[in-house]
Each structure stands twice: as structure tokens, then as C-alpha cells.
Amino acid sequence: MTRPQGVGIGWRPEIAGFVAELPGLRFVEVVAESLAPDGPLPPGLAALRERDVTVVPHGVRLSLGGAEPVDPARVTHLARVAELVDAPLVSEHIAFVRAGGLEAGHLLPLPRTREAVAAVTANVRRAQQELPVPLALEPIAALFDWPDDELDEADFLTEILDATDTELLLDVANVYANARNRGRDPQALLDRLPLDRIAYVHVAGGAEHGGLYHDTHTDPVPTEVLELLGALCAGRRPPPLLLERDGHYPPADVLRAELDALATAAGHPVVT
């Protein structure tokens, strides 16, 4: 039940061996939908729990931003998984992933309207009623905006977090991606976010395709994202950080160097 601390990594079966050998690791995140609600845990994850490494279930398919009520079975699954790993909190996105009976296959942005704030708020409250632990919400990286936004990203996020009393899972790579793809200053966007609500921070790699920055999770973490992370951590107690990697896994020494770079940028002890 220990809260996230230091530098963590997204646990994935493909890198379970690598993660198991990180001596200083105190926390990981696992994709909630990848776990069976009654267990058993994958062996690598069970071994981390035995070492008292904190495991945070991270949902990707609740669709809290959907106009329709969140699927109760999906909330139950997340709640069961939280109990299974004895999680101190769970996290999900401010996004929708399906509508009208179709799966989008990815996290899609909401229109930043009062109607959308109300829809997310209602769904988060439904989820909170059943979840045994606090829920942290993560703003996503989006390649496009809706045509009729009433609020900017910071106000939209703040309204939702205030209305639901949720913590913030801040993804600095998403902040970088959104600001850059809108031609804005990432630091200026970061400064307007409700940083006092941070539960932990995501960091991930990305790449440019066709003039747009894509938050791929399959490329190295760019220098600009590390700098933004450094700016976030400067002058305050650094929040817990989590590196997300979801494919094209590099050799172990490269991944280790990336974890070390995160620790250095934030002022955390290295975990490798």
C-alpha cells in the first residue's frame, strides 16, 4: 500500500526480466486490463509484490470521457485488480475510447466543453463509488482538437479534478506533445496545470512524423521532454516518475540509461 516513490517503470511482460533486476526499483505500473481480476499475477509481477514494490494499476479502456455511463463491469475489474496488487491508487485517462458501438483502439480527446466536463465528472464519480483506492486522472496527448472548445486545456483539467476531487497523473511527454503540436510553449502550458494535485508523473518517448510530434512510447525520450521534466522538478520536491515504454524495446543498457536520465533530471536516486 506504499505510495509511488522515486523512479518507476511500466511493467510489461516483454521487459519483465529487465524490471526484475532493477535493484532500486520501488514502484511500477501495470496495464489494468492485462491482469485477471482473480489472479494469479504474472510471475514477474508477483515477485515484485513480494519485494514490496508498489504496483499501480493503470486503466486504458474505461472510457471515462464517454458520453455514456462507464461500464460497471470495467469498473469492477479495475477495483478487483487494485485489491489483487494491494494498490495505493489507480489511474485512468481523461479520454474516450469507444462510442456508438465502435472501439477507437486508442485514447481520444474530448471536446473541452462544459458538457464534456459534466460527462467525465459523472463517470469518475460512478467509478469512485466502487474503487477501493483513490483515482488519479491523466490528460492525454492528442493530435487534434474539437472545433468548439470552450475551455483551454489547463482550465478543462482543473475543473474536472476539482469537481471529482481526483489526483493528477501528469504526463510531461503529453504536455510537450500537445503544446508543440499547437505551436505553443510547453513550459507555459505546464505552469498553468494544477501541479499541486500531482500523484505521479509519466515520461515517455516519441518521434516526429509529418511535422507532428507523436507520443509513441516506442522511441527514446527526447531531450526536450527531459528538460521539461527538469523544469517541473526544479524548486520543488520531485514527484514520483514512471517511464512508459510499450514496444520496440531497446537493449537493457539503453533502457537503464533512460531510467538514469529520468532520475538525474528530477533529482531522484538512480534505481539501476
Partner: peptide, 8 residues
Amino acid sequence: GLAARQAA
């Protein structure tokens, strides 16, 4: 409405 617009 949000539901129809998300579906579209």
C-alpha cells in the same frame, strides 16, 4: 449532443 458527436 456529446454521445452522437463522439460516435460520429
